[in-house]
Amino acid sequence: MRRFLFLLIFGLAGLGVLLSLGMWQVQRLAWKQGVLAEIENRISAEPVALPQQVSEDADKYLPVTISGDMEPGEIHVLVSVKQVGAGYRIIQSFSTDDRTILVDRGFVPTVAKLNERLTGPMEITGNLHWPDEIDSYTPEPDIDDNIWFARDVPNLAAALGAEPVLLIAQSETDPNVTPLPVDTAGIPNDHLQYAITWFGLALVWAAMTGYFLWRSRANSESDAT
């Protein structure tokens, strides 16, 4: 009987832990979905003028329309686009009346890396963004071949003589450059998979607990006879 009670208590405790972890992931899923919905609403809001004082915390994803001049000179950030392949994001400086910021114009394939692109007066609508693309595995830029491996906003700004403010274009700035607007597709949301994993483990645990309880009882009855 002691062994049976031990297995029962141990099994119920483990089942409770696994179920609580699954429920926690369900709660996290609801929270993450709310965060993503908020970001999507912010991305798709009506564009405003570029704020005089820009803050990453307050202005991330802010839709903005700017008018001015696309300056010559560009930086190429290596990127891969689904169903298209490798290419480059085209980053250039853009001057308004009183300031110069960075613009991510979009994607060109590798064969178009050295093609000329439109510069001069234009109006651009996009979203302010501070991409988090750098980790310990990110290579240093290949300055000689103008190949960067991440959108490192401060270093891009220093290289192009602009403020560390990046506008990712929604609107087209050149017929041969494909805009890659900001969206939530790259923001991880794996909580559903985690919840399924924990609930699956709970089901297996419950089955194993039931089996061992049955074996323990069967052995006890066998010993009694």
Rank of each mutant, 00 (worst) to 15 (best):
W198T: 06
W148G: 09
L19A: 13
I75H: 11
A159S: 15
T125W: 15
V182L: 12
W148P: 08
L160F: 10
Q25D: 04
L8W: 10
T100M: 11
E123V: 15
H129D: 12
P175G: 12
W130N: 04
W24S: 00
D183C: 04
G22C: 12
Q52C: 00
G210H: 14
K82Y: 03
H129E: 10
F212I: 13
A202S: 02
S20T: 11
G85A: 09
R89I: 01
I196R: 10
D97V: 11
L78E: 12
Q33P: 12
S80P: 00
A195Y: 07
V108H: 02
A202M: 15
M23V: 10
M1I: 10
D142Y: 13
E172T: 13
N41K: 12
A157T: 03
A206V: 15
R105I: 07
V111I: 06
S93C: 09
P154D: 01
I90M: 05
A218R: 01
G87M: 14
E71P: 00
N219S: 02
Q193E: 04
G14W: 10
T197I: 05
M70H: 01
T197G: 09
D57L: 15
A162K: 08
E46C: 04
S93E: 03
R215N: 02
T119D: 12
T138G: 15
Y61G: 07
S44V: 03
E123I: 09
V84L: 11
L203E: 01
G85Y: 05
L213P: 12
L29I: 00
A112R: 13
F199I: 04
L36T: 10
D144K: 12
L15T: 03
R99E: 11
G73L: 11
F6L: 07
G210I: 06
